[in-house]
């Protein structure tokens, strides 16, 4: 049994006489312990999708089954009960501005009727978990964005949820804080065996912590699978765009610079298991004595392993090119031709 099962889910918004299909026939399975990414450009429908998971939005069609329970079949009261085990964090943190950190974290417990003292003790414990013990009495306005999101995460964990939904949780944060929050989410996933669903428009977020990803475009699910597979061999146009944009800046720049160089074949290589210390490209150039043009590169050293990708322009000569591709493949790199 999947933790979350989405079957033929559709959502149509009706405004006056205008019908907008926000989501059409979405099918996904999220297993227990997954960190499941849902990625798409803004307006793709991903925020609507995540709100259908806890029925903040009621789907027009289809089913959402959470831990074997069909959400659509629940009464209003049962639904509220179910939501207590499906926590959610948001892009704008959404903390109560007039309550301090401890009161904010206690809030979900208090509305369930937990005695004040008990709720407060639990809140303090959670503040420790998120590394903010010294901010118990601070109000949201006195906290930085990253700290506010930590309080929000602590609040989300207050009721021992089974699932944590993250709606663009790091989109309002700087890259460094984003990394810290993602580390925290990963830590929670491992220590509490929580199933996590992450909505984002950033491929880097998916790459960093997700094990599976669904790509949503114009309300349709265009690609779904393991993050590595999709990053290494993106099939859909949307996936390619998301990956390339992430690596090389804005989407419009994707076409132009590549197109300027018309000679030779362009390939994209993806570093997977290579040692970060092996100068693969340099060695290849030395070996073949032929120049190679690096059009773009985005690699990072993650724990001694090179992660990321490059776009190379290889010599026109077909023979050399094929040999080079084989050379790269032998070294464990993923190679694919770029056809734009």
């Amino acid at each position: 049994m999947s933790e979350i099962e989405v079957r033929h889910l559709s959502k149509t918004f009706t405004q006056k006489d205008l019908k907008v299909d926000a989501l059409s026939d979405i099918n996904i399975n999220i297993e227990k312990g997954d960190i499941y990414g849902i990625i798409g450009m803004s307006g793709a429908g991903k925020s609507t999708l995540v709100r259908c998971l806890n029925y903040l939005e009621r789907p027009t069609d289809g089913q959402v089954i959470v831990r074997g329970q069909e959400m659509g079949a629940l009464s209003e009261k049962e639904l509220r009960q179910a939501r207590m085990k499906i926590a959610m964090i948001f892009q704008s943190f959404n903390l109560l501005q007039q309550k301090n950190a401890v009161e904010n974290i206690s809030f979900p417990l208090r509305i369930q009727g937990t005695p004040k003292k008990e709720a407060k003790a639990r809140a303090k414990e959670l503040l420790r978990t998120v590394g903010l013990s010294d901010k118990a009495k601070s109000y949201p306005s006195q906290l930085s964005g990253g700290q506010q999101q930590r309080v929000a995460i602590a609040r989300a964990l207050a009721c021992d949820p089974d699932i944590l939904l993250c709606d663009e949780a790091t989109s309002a944060l700087d890259p460094q804080t984003t990394d810290q929050i993602l580390d925290l989410i990963k830590e929670i996933n491992e220590s509490l065996h929580l199933t996590i669903v992450i909505i984002t428009h950033q491929m880097s977020v998916i790459q960093k912590i997700c094990n599976r990803v669904a790509i949503i475009e114009n309300g349709h699910l265009v690609e779904e699978g393991r993050v590595e597979d999709i990053f290494n061999h993106p099939k859909s146009r949307a996936a390619r765009e998301l990956i390339f944009r992430e690596v090389h800046g804005d989407p419009p720049t994707l076409q132009s610079p590549i197109d300027e160089i018309t000679e030779g074949t362009k390939i994209r290589i993806v570093f997977t298991a290579n040692s970060a210390f092996e100068p693969v490209v340099s060695n290849m150039i030395l070996k073949f004595g032929q120049p190679v043009n690096i059009l773009r590169a985005n690699t990072r050293n993650v724990g001694g392993v090179a992660k990321g990708d490059m776009i190379l322009q290889l010599p026109v000569d077909r023979e050399t090119r094929l040999q080079m591709e084989d050379y790269l493949k032998e070294r464990g790199l993923e190679v694919e031709e770029v056809t734009t």
């Binding site: 806890n54 903040l56 509220r80 009960q81 179910a82 939501r83 207590m84 499906i86 926590a87 959610m88 948001f90 704008s92 959404n94 903390l95 109560l96 501005q97 809030f107 979900p108 509305i111 369930q112 009721c159 939904l165």
Partner: peptide, 13 residues
């Protein structure tokens, strides 16, 4: 803020 209300709803309020 509508976001705060949504957060409360997501907690089962």
């Amino acid at each position: 803020d509508a976001g705060v209300i949504e957060a409360a709803r997501s907690m089962g309020a």
